[in-house]
Amino acid sequence: MSVLVGLIVTLGMLVIVPAGLRLMDAPDLTAVRRLWPFFAVPGAVCLWLPRGATATALAGCYALGTVLLALHAPRRLLRTRSAAPAEVAVLTALVSPSVAALALVAERSGHRLFGFGLDILALTVPHFHFAGFAAALVAGLVCRTVDRPAARFAALSVPLGTLLVLLGYFLDDWAELAGAVVLTAGMWTVALLTWRDVARERHDRPTRALLAVSAAVLVVTMLLALSWALGEATGLPHPDLTWMAATHGLGNALGFALCAVLAWRRLRENEENPA
């Protein structure tokens, strides 16, 4: 696993996921939130060790935490009995880290899971932390805030696009391209609604700036994702995986996910403690 991918995944494990969990209206997640560092820290450490038994064991510890998190998805579904778009997005966020953890355990052990190369498995880990968890969560938050069809479209298309990209791994590059198109449409809709509806409310300047950055970055990073998927399917020139990690991956991690969760945390705090 490259240094850059390791840094991106570390950010996802130690910052994005725990910050995102605090944005979910789920009192039953309290225990997982408190225990998360005991799973995430070993997971982050394993990224910097050579592949082998120790790295695999630490990755397994992280996987255990993600399974505990994923188990809240069916419990939440039974409790709410809702398939509303915002709920679909939250359920996707709860499950996605476990997909990332499965890929991580395989990659750290040197096992070609389902025949996929170790490079692909390594990149699956950040994809399901940021597209699977962060993007789905933010789409759900936007959907709860902005009551219009476009918001519901975003909350459904981000999870659907993430699922289609995953299925594309097993089918072919054209299926993965279809997933990238759906995911991009959802992410661009999130960006538009964030810019037009959420950021223009009477929030403080830092919050508006964080929301604006998170929206603007998505325009560029998802265009890169489209160009890569199109190139893989058609053979047209496109960025390689190293360049994608340095642009699409880093942009989504810092510019979108980090800025978005910080902004929504500030919004939540302002709601709970109005001036």
Rank of each mutant, 00 (worst) to 15 (best):
F130N: 00
A131W: 02
G132T: 07
F133S: 08
F133H: 06
F133D: 06
F133I: 03
A134Y: 03
A135L: 05
A136P: 01
A136Q: 03
G140L: 14
G140H: 06
G140V: 07
C143M: 08
R144C: 11
D147A: 15
D147Q: 15
R148V: 05
R148S: 14
R152D: 12
F153L: 15
A154N: 11
A154E: 02
A154M: 09
L156V: 04
L156M: 11
P159L: 13
L160C: 07
G161D: 04
T162F: 09
T162W: 02
L163A: 14
L163P: 08
L164F: 06
L164W: 11
V165G: 08
L166I: 01
Y169W: 15
Y169Q: 05
F170R: 13
F170H: 11
F170V: 00
L171P: 00
D172Y: 13
D172C: 10
W174H: 14
A175R: 12
L177G: 01
L177F: 13
G179K: 02
V181F: 05
V181M: 07
V181N: 02
V182E: 10
L183W: 10
A185P: 06
G186Y: 10
M187W: 05
W188T: 13
W188S: 03
A191K: 00
A191I: 10
L192G: 08
T194R: 09
W195I: 02
R196V: 02
V198H: 07
R200Q: 15
R202P: 04
H203W: 15
H203R: 15
T207A: 07
R208D: 02
L210G: 01
L210Y: 03
A212V: 09
V213N: 11
S214R: 09
A215R: 01
A215L: 10
A216Y: 01
V219P: 00
T221M: 14
T221K: 08
M222I: 06
L223T: 14
L224K: 07
A225E: 04
L226Y: 11
S227D: 12
S227G: 08
A229H: 11
L230E: 14
L230G: 15
